[in-house]
Simulated assay, not measured.
Amino acid sequence: MQLGNLERSIMEALWEHPEGMFAHVLAPQLPSEPAITTVLTVLMRLSKKGMVARERVGRAHLYKATADRDAFVAEAMQAALNEAGDLQAAVQRFVGGVTPEVAAALREALGEQDGSTQ
């Protein structure tokens, strides 16, 4: 699932605050400090996408991320690969630029995948 810049910024803030955030606290922390009404609109959009839940607390709503950050990143990586014109070239360029830590994680994940299919 692809997110716009403001959606992504909101999700990043919510992932950093698993206890949840109120829109009036969230808005000033976002780039360009969007209007509270804009933040509320985006939060509702994210709620419809199943990425955010809200809970009534007094007269306001507390918003929490329901989408897992790691799952979101994995889905974004898959979507990027699906858009590649030449998959082999895209993967080679990606692998050529990864850090040793990412290379090790890829090797481990591929090893686990190979082991589970045997």
Rank of each mutant, 00 (worst) to 15 (best):
Ala80Arg: 03
Leu46Trp: 14
Thr38Gln: 09
Gly4Glu: 00
Gln2Pro: 02
Gly111Glu: 06
Gln118Ile: 13
Leu106Arg: 05
Thr99Val: 11
Glu75Asn: 04
Lys48Phe: 08
Arg8Cys: 04
Gln2Tyr: 03
Gln88Met: 10
Thr41Leu: 09
Glu75Ile: 02
Gly50Ile: 00
Glu108Met: 04
Asn5Asp: 04
Leu40Asn: 15
Arg93Gly: 07
Pro100Trp: 03
Gln2Gly: 06
Leu40Cys: 11
Ser116Ala: 09
Ala71Gln: 02
Val95Thr: 00
Ala109Asn: 15
Gln118Arg: 13
Ala60Tyr: 02
Val91Ala: 11
Glu75Ser: 09
Arg54Asn: 10
Gly97Glu: 12
Ile10Pro: 13
Ser116Phe: 05
Thr66Gly: 11
His61Val: 01
Pro18Met: 02
Asp70Ser: 04
Ala53Cys: 04
Lys49Thr: 04
Glu12Trp: 04
Ala60Glu: 12
Thr37Ala: 06
Glu16Val: 03
Glu16Cys: 08
Asp86Glu: 10
Thr38Leu: 11
Ala13Asp: 13
Leu81Val: 00
Pro34Ala: 00
Ala74Gln: 03
Leu110Thr: 09
Asp86Leu: 08
Met1Ser: 13
Ala105His: 01
Val91Met: 09
Arg45Ala: 09
Gln2Ser: 05
Ala60Met: 04
Leu26Cys: 02
Tyr63Phe: 12
Leu3Asp: 10
Gly58Leu: 00
Gln78Ala: 15
Asn5Arg: 07
His24Leu: 03
Val102Lys: 02
Val57Asn: 07
Met77Tyr: 10
Met51Lys: 02
Leu43Lys: 12
Ala13Ser: 15
Gln113His: 14
Gly97Leu: 07
Asp114Arg: 07
Pro100Gly: 14
Asp70Arg: 03
Gly97Lys: 12
Asp114Ser: 11
Pro18His: 03
Val42Cys: 12
Gly97Cys: 08
Met77Gln: 04
Thr37Met: 02
Ala74Ile: 08
Ser116Trp: 03
Gln29Ser: 14
Val42Asp: 07
Ala109Tyr: 15
Phe22Thr: 05
Arg93Lys: 06
Pro31Trp: 02
Pro31Leu: 05
Glu19Asp: 15
Ala74Glu: 07
Ile36Tyr: 13
Gln118Glu: 13
Pro28Gln: 06
Met21Asn: 14
Thr117Gly: 07
Thr66Glu: 12
Thr38Met: 07
Ala76Phe: 08
Asp114Cys: 09
Gly20Trp: 03
Asp68Leu: 02
Val91Arg: 01
Ala65Leu: 00
Asn5Thr: 13
Lys49Phe: 12
Asn82Gly: 10
Pro31Arg: 08
Phe94Ala: 07
